[in-house]
Simulated assay, not measured.
Amino acid sequence: MKAVVLLSGGLDSSTVLYQAKMDGCVVHAISFDYQQRHQLELQAATKIASAAGVIEHQIIAFDLRRWGGSALTDDAIAVPTNRILTDISEYIPVTYVPARNTIFLSFALAFAEAKGAERVYIGVNAVDYSGYPDCRPDYIQAMQEVFRLGTKQGREGEPISIVAPLIKLKKTEIIQLGNNLGVPWELTWSCYSGGNIACGVCDSCRLRLAAFSELGLEDPLPYAVRGEQGNQ
Results as ranks from 00 to 15, higher is better:
residue 119 R to P: 01
residue 198 A to N: 06
residue 166 L to D: 04
residue 170 K to H: 09
residue 193 S to T: 09
residue 215 L to K: 04
residue 114 A to H: 11
residue 162 I to C: 08
residue 27 V to P: 00
residue 49 A to L: 07
residue 177 L to K: 14
residue 28 H to R: 09
residue 49 A to M: 04
residue 27 V to N: 00
residue 170 K to S: 07
residue 4 V to S: 06
residue 229 Q to W: 11
residue 196 N to A: 08
residue 115 K to I: 11
residue 208 R to M: 14
residue 9 G to H: 02
residue 161 S to K: 13
residue 77 I to P: 08
residue 84 I to N: 12
residue 109 L to Y: 01
residue 75 D to V: 12
residue 104 F to Q: 04
residue 155 R to C: 12
residue 185 W to H: 10
residue 132 Y to N: 04
residue 73 T to H: 13
residue 182 G to V: 01
residue 17 L to S: 03
residue 2 K to I: 06
residue 213 S to D: 12
residue 211 A to M: 00
residue 62 F to Y: 15
residue 232 Q to E: 14
residue 127 V to R: 12
residue 190 S to M: 08
residue 222 P to C: 06
residue 77 I to F: 11
residue 168 K to V: 14
residue 136 R to E: 11
residue 131 G to I: 10
residue 100 R to Y: 12
residue 227 G to L: 14
residue 88 I to W: 01
residue 178 G to D: 03
residue 134 D to G: 05
residue 231 N to F: 15
residue 11 L to P: 02
residue 15 T to G: 01
residue 27 V to Y: 00
residue 206 R to W: 08
residue 189 W to Y: 14
residue 30 I to D: 00
residue 157 G to I: 00
residue 42 L to D: 03
residue 224 A to P: 06
residue 91 Y to M: 15
residue 71 A to F: 02
residue 39 Q to M: 12
residue 220 P to F: 05
residue 129 Y to I: 03
residue 35 Q to A: 10
residue 54 V to C: 12
residue 11 L to N: 05
residue 25 C to I: 10
residue 217 L to K: 01
residue 178 G to K: 01
residue 99 A to M: 13
residue 29 A to G: 05
residue 205 C to W: 09
residue 154 G to D: 04
residue 135 C to M: 12
residue 41 E to R: 02
residue 50 S to R: 12
residue 121 Y to H: 01
residue 212 F to E: 01
residue 178 G to F: 00
residue 173 E to H: 05
residue 73 T to M: 08
residue 45 A to I: 06
residue 166 L to G: 04
residue 185 W to I: 07
residue 230 G to F: 10
residue 6 L to R: 03
residue 198 A to V: 01
residue 134 D to M: 07
residue 37 R to N: 10
residue 51 A to Q: 00
